[in-house]
Design a binder for these strands. Structure first.
Lengths: 227, 227
DNA sequence: GCAATGGTTCGTCTATGGTCGAACCATGAA
DNA sequence: TTCATGGTTCGACCATAGACGAACCATTGC
């Protein structure tokens, strides 16, 4: 009697704590090996192997074998989007009784979320874009205004190839550390890449921290100062 | 070591087949009583009661008591969005090996999905809007173009109050019966309401079918003919 | 008052599935 | 070859949680 795809199966896959930990660990976009994921999830290698097999079988993960290492990554952007959507409802429902956020100040200041900038700087970027009228809409889905189109183009973001993409151009992602929004979507990704390219910031290896240089932070503030 | 909201808990809530059936049954937007939901899920009243209690406790459902009837509905649009996102990944991963869609031709032709139009007519509407340049973007998130703004305004949709809303103005929703997109978001909802108001169509009670009158269908084709 | 209907609570049964120990394959290096 | 490391498979154990029967509360109508 049921119609539509088997949503329960997918949700149950995400619904196990160990697997959920693996998935959120992969939300930053890169691939991790099986043992790294086992450590992330806090289980032994055997159980991790079982979970990873089920996740790939279920189509949520993609496996790449390189020598004796098995790398896993999220299978497509929509998987990440679904995880973000679940985070959104979890955050708004269960409220802030969950831990208020990462304890590491650097993590809280600027970190990567899937493939875009999160943390205080991410929130600031979003709120500046909102205040300057570059984006409109207050939900998870945003529309890019003409002013925003002009501003991002001027900043050096090539918008046309992004619009060709199947990926949402412009989306808000709930920042669970601050319970505020930050900018996700194709533009969010392109902006972070641009920060890297300009030498404003770099990704600390083995961590989600995005480390801005003093000059980079100053330049960022010049473009996106709040208010 | 985990950070962020407890995504596993929410996902596990959705991950049970009985509960998932209840949730998708509620995706059309109205409220259903406990016994109706029990029937939808294919379980007895007792088990349904337990599931419903957990869903409301988890913040996914909202309960309204009217006399001796308990009505349940989805708790907010983001819950529906999360369900749609899960449907998206489920549909694209597990592929069309799941039943290709509703068997009832009327259901396949025009039905309600959460609160907007789905089925063949929904897909046609989306593709016309895409072809006419009213919307841009090919992912789940769309931007309304100026032409689209003009077109929908001319059709009689008041866009300004929608933009105030927290709800996404314009979004694509994957139609799992056709594996194509249809138009969701605030505009999708407003359009369907407009079809009702104009007397073009009505909702068949107790079903998801949207029944167009011959004149209504003709008028619809006049506005949104494909090609 | 009584009966009927809609929902919930309690107790029990059962099975699914998450976990780990141990053994087993595969790759790469000495 | 031998050894070490990264992953998987197998088997057994155990807890959770989903299912229903029965009884219980609440609302409506007679």
């Amino acid at each position: 009697m049921k119609e539509g795809p088997d949503i329960a199966q997918t949700a149950a896959l995400i619904g196990d704590p160990a697997r959920a930990n693996m998935l959120v660990a992969l939300m930053d976009g890169h691939a991790l090996t099986a043992t790294e994921l086992a450590q992330e999830a806090g289980v032994t290698k055997q159980t991790a192997s079982s979970h990873l097999a089920r996740l790939t079988e279920g189509g949520l993960l993609k496996r790449e074998v390189q020598g004796r290492h098995h790398y896993f990554r999220l299978n497509g952007a929509d998987v990440g989007a679904a995880l973000e959507a679940l985070m959104g409802v979890s955050a708004s429902r269960t409220g802030p009784r969950t831990r208020p956020g990462p304890r590491d100040p650097a993590l809280r200041h600027a970190r990567v979320c899937y493939d875009h900038l999160a943390g205080e700087m991410g929130v600031q970027l979003y709120e500046h874009a909102q205040g300057a009228g570059w984006i409109s809409g207050d939900g998870t889905v945003l529309t890019l205004t003409e002013a925003g189109h002009a501003a991002f183009s001027e900043f050096g973001i090539a918008l046309e190839p992004l619009q060709e993409n199947r990926r949402p151009l412009c989306r808000a992602c709930l920042d669970w550390s601050m319970r505020r929004h930050h900018l996700a979507g194709g533009i969010g990704k392109a902006l972070l890449q641009s920060f890297y390219d300009r030498g404003w910031a770099r990704r600390l290896p083995g961590s989600r921290i995005v480390s801005f240089t003093p000059q980079g932070e100053r330049a960022f503030q010049g473009y996106f100062r709040a208010g």
